[in-house]
Write a protein that binds this DNA or RNA. Structure first.
Lengths: 217, 217
DNA sequence: TGTTGTTACAGGGAAAACCCTATGTGTAGA
DNA sequence: TCTACACATAGGGTTTTCCCTGTAACAACA
C-alpha cells in the first residue's frame, strides 16, 4: 500500500456468519482493519454516531431487512459523503446496481468473487476512488446501452394493460368494460398476442406474463 | 476438544467470497482445518474423488446452481455416509430444512448465526453427532407438529396432478387423456376445486397454485 | 390524392370452459 | 345387511374462449 496508516473498514450485512468471516479475512489483509460490523442500515447509523473512529470504506450488503442497501446508501451520501462505499450483493440485479451507483456507491462487488479479489477491490477503491468487478461491469455496460430494450417495450400500452387484467379472474367482457373498449377489440388484442407469443390459450398468456415479470401475483 | 488430531472441514458454497472468508474463520478455530472448498455439488464430488484426505464435516450451502444442497445431500448419504454434513442456508425454509434432515444432514445452520456459534456447531456435530440452531429448532418443531399440515396435504393426489397440468396450456380433454380419466371426471375435479378454493376460472386456479407453490413455472 | 398502416370494432361459428344434477361401483362402518 | 361415503362418470345446458375474416376511421406520407 502507498498509504502509511491502515484503513478502517466497516461491514454491513445481516448474515452474522458472513460478516464475521469477512472480518477475519479482511484483518489478514495488509493495510486494512475492520472497525466493527453492523447488521443493517439502522445499526450502522447508530454505530457511526457512537464510535469515534470513522471508517474509510463501508462494505454494504444490498439485501437486508430493516434498512436495506439502497436506503442506507442514500443516507450515507447525505451524511458521510467522504466514506467510500463498496456495495455487496448476491446476485447482479441490474436495477439495484444502478440505484446503488447512482446513489454514490464507489463500486459493486458480487459475493461470488474470489477472496483475493476483495483485497484488490479495497486497494482500487482507496487509490482510484472506484472499483467494478468484471461481471458487474458487463451488466452495467449492457444496461447503459441504449438499444437493449426491456421486454415491456415490445408491447403497446393497451396490450400491457390487457395482459395484466387477463392475469386475473376477469372475463374478457369484464376486461373490456374496465378498459372502456368493445369486447371485440379486446378479442383483437387477445388474438394478436396469442399469435405473436405463440401461445394456445389464456393460461399460456398468464405463464408468459409471469415468466417475463410483466405482472406479479 | 476431546479429540487429539484436528478435524477436516470442507465448505460447499457458490459464493467464493463467503466460502473463502469462512475458511479463514474456521482455520482460526482450535481443532479444525479447512481442506478445500467447492462451488457446488458437482465440484464437491470431483474433489472428494480427487483429494486423498476425507473430510470429517462438510458445510453444505442449500441454494447453489448446478447441483443444489438437497441433491448433494442425497449423493453424500449414498456415497459417503460417514461424513457429517451441516447444512447452511440464508433463510429458514421449512420444507428445505426437512428435506436436508431427512436426507441425513446432521444439522442446519442459518447464515445469520454469530461466528462464534459456528465453533459450537462444529464441536457439537463432532461430539454428539448433531446440531441445531435455536431458530431452526423452532421451525423444525413447528413443522413436526402433526396439526400444521402442509398446504399440499389439503389436496388429494389426483387433485394435485390435475392442478399441475391445469397450469399448462393443455385443454381439459388433453389433461384427461394424460391422466387416463374421462373428461367428465376431470370436469368433476375442476368443479370441486373451483368451489373449495372459491375461484371463478382457470386463471384463478393457476394463480392459486403459484401463490401456494404447488406448481412452478 | 391515393397508399399504407394502425386501431377499434363486428359477424359468425366452433371449441372449450363452466355449471348443475344424477348414477353406478366399491368400500368401510354401524 | 343397511348406510354412508368417496370416486369416476354422464347428460345436457349456458357462457366464454378462441378463431377467421372484413370494415370504418384516422393519421402519415409520398
Amino acid at each position: 500500500m502507498s498509504n502509511t496508516k491502515s484503513k478502517n473498514v466497516v461491514i454491513v450485512d445481516d448474515h452474522l456468519l458472513f460478516a464475521g468471516s469477512l472480518e477475519q479475512l479482511i484483518d489478514t489483509f495488509d493495510g486494512y482493519h475492520v472497525l466493527y460490523h453492523a447488521k443493517n442500515g439502522k445499526d450502522l447509523i447508530l454505530q457511526l454516531k457512537a464510535v469515534d473512529q470513522c471508517p474509510d470504506i463501508v462494505l454494504l450488503d444490498i439485501n437486508m431487512p430493516v434498512m436495506n442497501g439502497v436506503e442506507t446508501m442514500e443516507w450515507l451520501t447525505a451524511n458521510y459523503p467522504e466514506i467510500k462505499v463498496l456495495a455487496l450483493s448476491m446476485e447482479d440485479e441490474e436495477t439495484t446496481i444502478l440505484k446503488m451507483l447512482m446513489n454514490g456507491a464507489k463500486g459493486y462487488l458480487l459475493k461470488d468473487i474470489h477472496p483475493e479479489k476483495l483485497k484488490e477491490a479495497l486497494d482500487e477503491t482507496i487509490e482510484k476512488g472506484y472499483y467494478h468487478s468484471e461481471k458487474v461491469s458487463a451488466t452495467l455496460l449492457r444496461s447503459l446501452q441504449p438499444n437493449v430494450p426491456s421486454i415491456e417495450d415490445s408491447f403497446k400500452e393497451n396490450e400491457l394493460i390487457f395482459m395484466k387484467l387477463a392475469c386475473s379472474e376477469m372475463t374478457y367482457k369484464e376486461i373490456a368494460g374496465k378498459m372502456n373498449l368493445s369486447p371485440k377489440t379486446i378479442d383483437g388484442y387477445r388474438q394478436e398476442l396469442f399469435n405473436r407469443l405463440e401461445i394456445k390459450n389464456r393460461v399460456g398468456l398468464v405463464i408468459y406474463a409471469l415468466k417475463n415479470n410483466l405482472v406479479s401475483i
